[in-house]
């Protein structure tokens, strides 16, 4: 089986493309960083890839609202191509700023198969301030391809606009359809219940990530690509002491890698 090709979008202030590409490569994909303008100019084509990743960053400096200007750039020039991509048997992920772009483009949640219709959005954090810290997540969705076998994740957020919002009746539909993929929890796994810092931005129902109806398109605010190694863990020095005293070898990997591995497995399984 050939390695799945992953298109890692870049340009205009996206800034997590290198580590996102690394994560896909580490777990067996064949990633390529592609500038959005090279897609618009026709130098690169969506159809040549199996995975689309819109990485984190600060596209257009979040000016006019996070993700908005990049989504407009794509919508104005590549709308049909990207809608076609997500409706095929392919995978897409939007992380942080990429999630903001993804929702603005209507690639997820796409309730009632309305791909391209904006149904949710990410507002300014409750404290109205950019915040970087590690969060505990619980996975909820059984249909999401990206989280097979993942129950909990400990990975960082870094954003100013991460408050996930949908009108109330629509959120219910999201839950009913098993499209809530990640929720923020306390350290012991119990729901954050909107409480800072466990829910770091005020998101409704502690939602940190969602998927489309097919489970192939994932959007999330936290960054799985930032916890690929043991030494990324904020408490790795404490964990190290425990391993040393148990005379156990130190682990190599971090928790975030599973998400990328699942994507690669989807094509080899």
């Amino acid at each position: 089986m050939a390695k799945p090709k992953a298109l890692i979008l870049s340009g205009y202030g996206i800034n997590c493309e290198e580590e996102t590409a690394y994560a896909f490569q580490k777990y067996g994909a064949n990633p390529e960083i592609v500038h959005v303008n090279d897609l618009i100019d026709g130098l690169k084509k969506f159809e040549d890839y199996q995975i689309l990743a819109i990485p984190g960053g600060f596209a257009y400096g979040d000016d006019t609202g996070a993700g908005k200007a990049m989504a407009n750039r794509i919508a104005n020039n590549l709308r049909e191509a990207v809608l076609k991509f997500v409706q095929k048997d392919k995978l897409a992920i939007g992380i942080c700023n990429g999630f903001q772009v993804l929702t603005a483009l209507g690639l997820a949640p796409a309730l009632d198969d309305q791909y391209g219709e904006r149904q949710s959005g990410l507002m300014a954090n409750d404290n109205n301030r950019y915040t970087c810290r590690w969060v505990h997540l619980k996975t909820g969705s059984k249909k999401c391809v990206w989280t097979k076998g993942v129950e909990r994740l400990y990975i960082p957020i870094a954003h100013g606009e991460g408050y996930f919002y949908m009108p109330e009746e629509k959120v219910k539909e999201l839950q009913t359809n098993d499209q809530v993929v990640f929720t923020y929890t306390k350290e012991d796994g119990s729901p954050a219940g909107g409480e800072y810092p466990y829910n770091p931005n005020g998101s409704i129902l502690d939602i940190a990530g969602i998927c489309d109806g097919s489970g192939r398109v994932l959007g999330l605010m936290p960054h799985p690509e930032r916890h690929l190694f043991f030494h990324n863990h904020p408490d790795f020095t404490l964990l190290k002491e425990k391993y040393l005293r148990e005379d156990e070898a130190l682990p190599q990997e971090g928790e975030g890698g599973k998400v990328f591995k699942n994507a690669v497995n989807y094509f080899s399984g």
Partner: peptide, 11 residues
Amino acid sequence: IQYDHEVQASS
């Protein structure tokens, strides 16, 4: 915490 110290996944 208002300065991103995790970007580039090198932290």
